[in-house]
């Protein structure tokens, strides 16, 4: 599968700011197909985990109300050269993971 996560991590004064952009349709399951009138089945990211080295930094549970192609930014204490791994799993069991280094 094509890489779905774009990740940038920058350290400043001991704090790492991570910015991530994931390409995902994030269908709520409430929207209707305008032509057929049928509901578009839900397809959204449910869980997202960020790790740095062997420690978990952030665990997120997302609903369908997060925008399409989700953007997420968070901060944690760290330094230049650390690694950041971001992974997600959606309601259909698809997943992706990417590891980047802090600049």
């Amino acid at each position: 599968m094509k890489k779905t996560i774009k990740l940038r991590a920058k350290a400043k004064n001991g704090v790492v700011t991570v910015k991530a952009l994931i390409s995902h349709p994030m269908e709520t399951g409430l929207r209707k197909n305008k032509k057929t009138g049928k509901l578009i089945p839900a397809h959204h990211i449910q869980q997202l985990v960020a790790r740095s080295g062997d420690k978990t930094v952030l665990q997120a549970a997302l609903g369908g109300a997060v925008s399409k192609n989700p953007y997420l930014s968070f901060r944690f204490a760290g330094n230049k050269g650390d690694t950041v791994t971001l992974s997600w799993v959606d309601n259909l069991g698809q997943s992706d993971e990417v590891t980047g280094s802090v600049k």
Binding site: V15, M26, T28, A50, S52, K55, T56, V57, L58, Q59, G64, A65, V66, S67, P70, Y71, L72, S73, F74, R75, F76, A77
Partner: peptide, 13 residues
């Protein structure tokens, strides 16, 4: 937030 600072930025519907 296991080890993250209390700062979250995202986009919602």
């Amino acid at each position: 937030l296991s080890a993250a600072e209390p700062y979250i930025s995202t986009r919602i519907k």
